[in-house]
Amino acid sequence: MSNALSIDELSVSYGPIPALKNVSIEVPNGGFVSVLGANGAGKTTLVRTISGVLYLQKGKRTSGSIKFGGEDISKLKSRSIVRGGIAHVPEGRMLFPHLTVDENLRCGAASRRDTSGISETLSEVFDLFPQLPPLQHQQAGLLSGGEQQMVAVGRALMAKPSLLICDELSLGLAPLIVRDLFLLLDRINQEGVAVLAIEQNARIALRHSKYAYALEVGEVVLEGPSAELRENQEVQDLYMGGGGDIREAYTAIRREVNR
């Protein structure tokens, strides 16, 4: 039971189209792991498989296993998975726009039955996001993108998870807000919650996570401690805008355009 989450040789396909091929990923207890990859690399498929909502997109797991705390969760319903301690911040936030912030957060505790514990967690979440209490009674759909993302993370935390999965936290947000959010993820991680961050923004994901995987067309092409990957030339070229060659590339483009 050294690993919170271990995915072994997972393959997923949407009908005839394979989306993941033999993907193996491990998230240690209290670890902070990021998964990088471009569009269509299979990142979202991966987390949907973990959370058990693959069937909504008509996807199917063809082989491999997902173990959480030593227990196979690949056949469980998503509500049992949430109750087991995996909370998911979905891509694009997916708040309930007509409910208030408070109600959105309370929805996050849908898997719990202890009323007093829920209000305790609610105040913890409000401590974590001091911007939220004044917005408590506002409709969630009217908040700014950053605030909505905070609500989405807070909503996931309301389930008191031991593993938090964040799908594309940085999507459509200003760099400063993304930085704040990742600092918050660090804090959540320090309190003992394992974090699995799915990111396109490799720079910030590698700065905050301890271990990282890179997905490419459904396969893990690279893995290693984040600090090492950050120095890796290949990663810099692929995900961080080409490192030192950028000036050269830029002048090449200029030349092309002027012609």
């Binding site: 959370s51 909502v53 909504l56 319903k77 998503s78 509500r79 998975i81 949430v82 109750r83 909370a87 998911h88 979905p90 997916m94 708040l95 309930f96 726009p97 007509h98 409910l99 109600e103 929805c107 996050g108 849908a110 898997s111 909503r155 996931a156 389930a159």
Partner: peptide
């Protein structure tokens, strides 16, 4: 209300 607004999101929160 969660089911009405976004049922995928509701599923992810453990709502049946």
């Amino acid at each position: 209300a969660a089911v009405r607004d976004r049922d995928i999101s509701a599923t992810l929160l453990g709502i049946n």
